[in-house]
């Protein structure tokens, strides 16, 4: 790792100020992606601003049809929260599939979505569960938030504070993991709302996306059979050593079908 200054923020305001004052500051939440990247000498921030223990970023609450989770909540806590398990079990399941138990003890919701790794699980949850993302500066929809590969709408000094997930009638997440890294080769969150279904896909493309054709089919018939014949186009999907674009496209169909099956 290259040298940097470690600074522990006592409040969100202080964190923002520290970010603004740093040459190239980065926020450290759980550090489960940032620190490995820095160990590989692939990033050299001047300052790390630790927001890992800010109380302002903590909290899990259900109010009406909204599940609010603080950006600093760790994956393990989301996975094991009894409130989330009863209100939105698909989200708890998803959090329990991120990384491994040790990573889940450190990694946070805010850290994950701010990084927007194309193979991360949370972006599928945010888009699939029609989430609103609250930052220090504003609130925006998940679709506005995730811009592209490792790219979000966040400005340099903007910090994710929490995420409101819309509680669906039913939902399920299915993931086909990369055999080596265990990130998602394809992950599909399917959710049914009174307003209609949502299908969000992670891992397959450069960033999370909605599978609109499937949403339309599920709107008239929320069953695995209704999307059986839909073929995801491999065009612009990721292709690597572990999965070609063709295979990923195929898996989008299979994982979506299985998610619908599980949710039904």
């Amino acid at each position: 790792m290259y040298e940097f200054n470690y600074k522990k923020a006592g409040s969100l305001d202080e964190a923002k100020a520290l970010l603004a004052g740093a040459d190239d500051g980065k926020l450290l939440s759980g550090g489960q992606t940032l620190l490995p990247t820095m160990k590989q000498r692939l990033a050299m921030p001047s300052d790390l601003i630790d927001i890992g223990s800010l109380a302002e970023l903590k909290g899990i609450a259900v109010s009406g049809d909204v599940l609010s989770i603080g950006a600093g909540e760790k994956h393990a806590d989301v996975a094991s929260s009894s409130e989330i398990r009863s209100a939105l079990p698909a989200l708890a399941d998803l959090a329990g599939m991120i990384g491994d138990p040790h990573v889940r003890h450190m990694g946070t919701l805010g850290g994950s979505i701010s990084n927007n790794d194309p193979a991360a699980d949370y972006p599928a949850a945010c888009v699939g569960l029609d989430a609103t993302i609250h930052t220090t500066d504003r609130s925006l929809s998940a679709e506005e938030f995730f811009v592209g590969m490792f790219e979000t709408a966040l400005s340099e000094t903007e910090i994710v504070v929490g995420v409101d997930f819309k509680v669906p009638q039913k939902a399920a997440y299915m993931k086909f993991p990369n055999p080596a890294s265990r990130y998602a080769i394809v992950g599909v969150m399917v959710a049914q709302y009174a307003s209609g279904p949502r299908v969000a896909v992670t891992g397959a493309g450069p960033s999370v996306f909605r599978q609109m054709e499937m949403e339309q089919a599920l709107a008239s018939d929320f069953s695995p059979g209704s999307i059986e014949a839909i073929r995801q186009s491999p065009e612009s999907l990721n292709s690597d050593l572990h999965a070609s674009a063709d295979y990923r496209a195929h898996l989008v169909g299979v994982m979506a079908k299985r998610a619908v099956e599980k949710a039904s």
Binding site: K8, L28, L35, D50, H102, H105
Partner: peptide
């Protein structure tokens, strides 16, 4: 996972945490 220790009772990878944290 060769580096796993417990911090405040929970298993973490000590190679993926700063001493400062």
């Amino acid at each position: 996972g060769a580096c796993v220790v417990h911090v405040n009772g929970k298993a973490v990878k000590s190679c993926t945490m700063l001493a400062a944290q």
